[in-house]
Design a protein around this nucleic acid. Structure first.
Lengths: 366, 366
DNA sequence: TTGTATGCGTTATCAA
DNA sequence: TTGATAACGCATACAA
């Protein structure tokens, strides 16, 4: 019955409607679908809301409408630079929209992911962004049963739950190895840490490329489940050298490891690229600043996050993308650290700023 | 009236209560304060909830209770490593609690911060974590008027809004300069980017320390508003060298810049620390892996985030901390890059793994 | 310790 | 295009 003002002194929709001389439901419609109002009422509600400083109550809205305006995001790490770029893209895309981001960290555990997914789904999110394609069977079932759009990010693969955006880590690794071979390197080692599914697929790509060249040897591969770090790069490289002292090159599963390898080479006075070529993965900013500059595989992380969130919001609002699976590709950024073997005496400490020759290799689908 | 089952088929508190043979409000109490129930009813509600797979409706809870279980977090950057560590701490502390994190990026703009703050406050958050102490007057007023606990993180200063956790960037910079002087360096340059308030206070600390030593010269300071990067470190150092070719040492406002300076030295064949000593700030992981290892000022970022969230949750639940302002201090981690001037011919490329001598300097409150 | 009555602010449904 | 009515699911206040 006729409550006049809310106890807390907050402005409700009812107050706005009263001032505008319309019913509450009309005012409500103004905020959700202004087009549905006559121009006269529209302007009256608008000015009334502004005058009173009306702020909608999201809890009431969620309760009444049976849905929230929350986009759930599940990522495996908060510290990995790779994900902070993706996140920035997601937040940038969500800004200005009516949706807010709910972020959770799976810590590279698919069981933790399953648990968080259950939690998220219970809140009826407007949409979900999940990392990768390696969910548990249970998670997949939940995702498939969810009545909201879903985007899988970071990589593409067969059988998307809904939408998917990323690139082929397998192809990217193959391209990196192909580049090393082009430069005359043959005995290429692999250094990897964490060994999450995407790193594993980079390793698979490496293995297949090496086998294609008839150069594969299990002894060239050094990996660990330990989280990645620059220090670890040096340690793994040390192991690799102990095993195979006459390697030509090292393909690192990420840029931190590559930087660690570079420092270890410096420590051991191994010339880069004279004696050992180095290729990293992700192309973080420091790769172009190192001495020598470090070759890497550039991935479009910010764009991936931004596009994922944009696609998701579009889908939430009924605008399904024409193409549910998006391959953002990658580029091998060739720099000094991988330049031709037995190069014409170019010193490792040559001038920086050499043009970054790029070779674009959009990965194939499936 | 007697709704029997909800249309959507969802399990409500009423169903749980019915199965348990208690009133809905008793079931409600079970989830908020189990201790208030008799043991008999407690177990009955518990098993009923489990049997039905009851999941509370947060929107209804928020609407009825007039408050949410959301902790708002405002940080200036999502890409800066410093904040990803803090964030990890915050998320870790919130995990397992009933509170969820709502994150927003101010992009180093206090106007954007004010806007976001207004947005957050409208949703009646359970608590807020904001970065730094340099809010707009309007923001401060809103914070002071907010009826929820608030933690300011990253630095400590006078006049906390509520709680505060961090350290003195001013003192930390002074400690870094003191260390360089102890090692015999005199003509110490400053390199800084972004120049947000905390970097500015590091600069202030540098200036005061240099003045104390009678060594200050404005020409030793090179700064830019540009966002920081490794590449930028090299560029700023280049500027500094052009101005003052005979400097002893460089104090960098962060570790990325320090790494850039190191690479630039290598490019120019300047011996580190033989000709130029380098000190960074934050002590990111790679500092200990570099060649030479890089001295830095260690800050407790993860702990800062974790403690902030823990304090906040405690305060939300009525357990106010005995000490609302917490100084987490810092440590100058002495490594090769800043070792004594005219050292006894120790080569820059000496063995890694030298013990990291630490000097602890908890900053004063004032 | 437990229960009753009522309110929270909005939207869905259906009718006009 | 607009409005009346009835949820939405839970918690507060107060009483027992």
């Amino acid at each position: 019955m006729g409550r006049k003002r809310t106890k807390s002194g907050k402005i409700r929709l009812a107050e706005v409607a009263e001032l505008a001389g319309v019913s509450p439901i009309t005012a409500s419609r103004f905020f959700r679908n202004p087009e549905a109002l006559s121009v006269a009422k529209r302007t009256r509600v608008e000015s009334a809301a502004k005058e009173l400083g009306y702020v909608p109550n999201l809890a009431a809205r969620a309760l009444a409408s049976q849905r929230t305006e929350v986009i759930g995001v599940l990522i495996p790490s908060l510290t990995n630079n790779v994900f902070s770029d993706v996140l920035r893209g997601i937040y940038d895309a969500s800004e200005g929209s009516r949706y807010s981001i709910q972020l959770s960290n799976t810590r590279y555990s698919i069981l933790q992911e399953e648990k968080l997914l259950r939690l998220f789904l219970a809140q009826k999110p407007a949409g979900l962004i999940v990392t990768g394609i390696d969910q548990t069977a249970e998670s997949r079932a939940m995702l498939q049963a969810a009545d909201c759009p879903i985007v899988q990010i970071m990589e593409i693969g067969p059988d998307p739950v809904d939408m998917m955006i990323g690139f082929s880590h397998y192809d990217a690794a193959r391209a990196a190895i192909a580049h090393l071979f082009e430069q005359g390197h043959r005995k290429v080692g692999f250094v990897g840490a964490r060994m999450d599914p995407r790193v594993q697929r980079r390793l698979d790509g490496y293995v297949s490329a090496m086998k294609d060249a008839g150069s594969f040897d299990q002894r060239l591969v050094v990996t660990t489940a330990t989280p990645t770090s620059v220090t670890l790069g040096g340690a793994l490289f040390t192991d690799l050298l102990a095993r195979e002292p006459d390697i030509d090159a090292v393909f690192c599963a990420n840029d931190d490891l590559a930087l660690g390898v570079l420092f270890e080479c410096r420590r051991r006075e191994i010339a880069v690229p004279g004696q050992i070529a180095i290729v990293g993965f992700n192309d973080l900013e420091f790769m172009a600043a190192a001495v020598p500059t470090l070759t890497s595989v550039r991935t479009n992380r910010y764009e991936m996050g931004k596009t994922a969130a944009t696609m998701l919001i579009d889908a939430i609002e009924g605008r399904r993308p024409e193409q549910p699976v998006l391959d953002l590709g990658f580029k091998v950024i060739e720099r000094q650290s991988s330049s031709a073997r037995r190069s014409d005496s170019r010193p490792a400490v040559s001038g920086a700023g050499a043009a970054n020759k790029m070779i674009a290799l959009p990965s194939s689908h499936d």
